[in-house]
């Protein structure tokens, strides 16, 4: 008696990994950094994340419906929430709600779905969203809070909610009273005003290496990033060359002129550098695929970031650097194709 079977392609194993697992691990790795952010700068960041994730999922669902794609596998892959969280982490904690709305529109609709959806985006969606709101709404995007330990006024949760919902400054005080310059802003303005770096660093917003609070957030991001490395969700090439190039170039500049160039570790622990090195520039879709290509990609992001910080119009340049290198990624991949087995190089 014969028995019939359904056939299927090899390998005959259940799937070992899913995109959802990959994305969820990224979210887990971000948690310590997010917690530290809330610890130093208040609960605003958590609200921003909640807003951005909600908008991202709505836009994602709308786009999938318009494109006649199934909702379940794509909404469940967690790629949109990851984009949203990375975007929200770049926002000032009290930014009004429509910043997240507009940012997510550009990230999910324009940068992701117009290019073909998951896996087809040329640019990092989170960075597209961030750069759009940064350029379009410079004032809202520079309303950073000082760390709570040195803040003159600490907004309560209800005031934070009200500020995000209405765009009004918390407690009826002026924005200037609540917000302050970031460490990178301070350095930039001081150097522009002819001060020495060492003088600028006298400000209480600086910590041991970078900004007060910021440096610890960076540490927690790095910890999450190292966990991702260990879990092999990301590969070592991009973080190493990105941070490495910043340290090396920063060191050279600092040795030549310590008066107007911050110390290399100041660079590493300021702005979005560590976050970018482990979580943003490592985005596989918009980055390089070959190992050597990733070395070039990481180094490129690091160098462009430094160039923008030193000569550009913005205090931090990670987002622009990532987008510029996204453009170059296909070309880099083409020229760094690994040697195939049994062929001479």
């Amino acid at each position: 008696m014969t028995r019939r079977f359904d056939t299927g392609g090899a390998p005959h194993f259940p799937p070992q990994a899913t995109i959802r697992q990959v994305m969820l691990q990224v979210v887990f790795a971000l948690l310590p950094g997010i917690a530290a952010h809330a610890w130093y700068f208040g609960p605003g960041i958590l609200l921003q994340i909640a807003l951005a994730v909600t908008f991202a999922l709505l836009f994602e669902a709308a786009c999938l419906t318009l494109r006649r794609k199934p909702l379940q596998p794509f909404l469940g892959d967690f790629s949109a929430p990851v984009t949203a969280i990375l975007f929200a982490l770049c926002l000032p904690p009290l930014a009004p709600w429509w910043i997240a709305l507009i940012g997510m529109f550009f990230a999910i609709v324009i940068a992701k779905h117009v290019f073909g959806g998951l896996g087809h985006n040329l640019f990092n969606p989170a960075m597209i969203g961030y750069v759009v709101v940064l350029i379009a709404f410079p004032q809202a995007m520079t309303a950073w809070l000082p760390p709570q330990s040195i803040a003159a006024y600490e907004p309560a949760l209800s005031e934070v909610v009200a500020a995000i919902a209405t765009g009004e400054s918390p407690g009826g005080m002026g924005w200037d009273a609540v917000t302050g310059a970031t460490p990178l802003d301070t350095l930039r303005n001081s150097v522009a005003a002819g001060q020495m770096i060492s003088e600028a660093r006298q400000s209480p917003i600086f910590g041991d290496f970078g900004g007060l609070g910021w440096e610890w957030i960076a540490n927690w991001y790095a910890l999450g990033g190292l966990w991702l490395l260990w879990r092999r969700v990301i590969s070592w090439q991009v973080p190493v060359t990105m941070i490495g190039s910043v340290v090396l170039l920063g060191l050279a500049a600092w040795l030549i002129d310590p008066g107007s160039n911050p110390a290399p570790l100041q660079h590493v622990f300021s702005g979005a550098l560590v976050l970018g090195a482990f979580f943003i520039a490592t985005d596989p879709v918009s980055g390089c695929a070959s190992p050597r290509g990733r070395l070039v990609f990481g180094a490129g992001v690091g160098i462009i970031t430094l160039v923008i910080r030193r000569w550009g119009a913005y205090p931090d340049g990670v987002a622009f650097a990532v987008l510029l290198m996204n453009m170059a990624a296909p070309l880099i991949d083409r020229y760094t194709r690994p040697r195939i087995f049994g062929r001479s190089s």
Binding site: P15, A17, T18, I19, V22, P70, P73, F74, D77, S79, G116, G117, L118, G119, H120, R232, S235, P284, V285, G287, A289, S290, P291, P338
Partner: peptide
């Protein structure tokens, strides 16, 4: 499982 688009994670390489 449903086939998803490639995210170029590079695990295959």
């Amino acid at each position: 499982q449903p086939e998803m688009p490639c995210i170029r994670c590079g695990e295959c390489a």
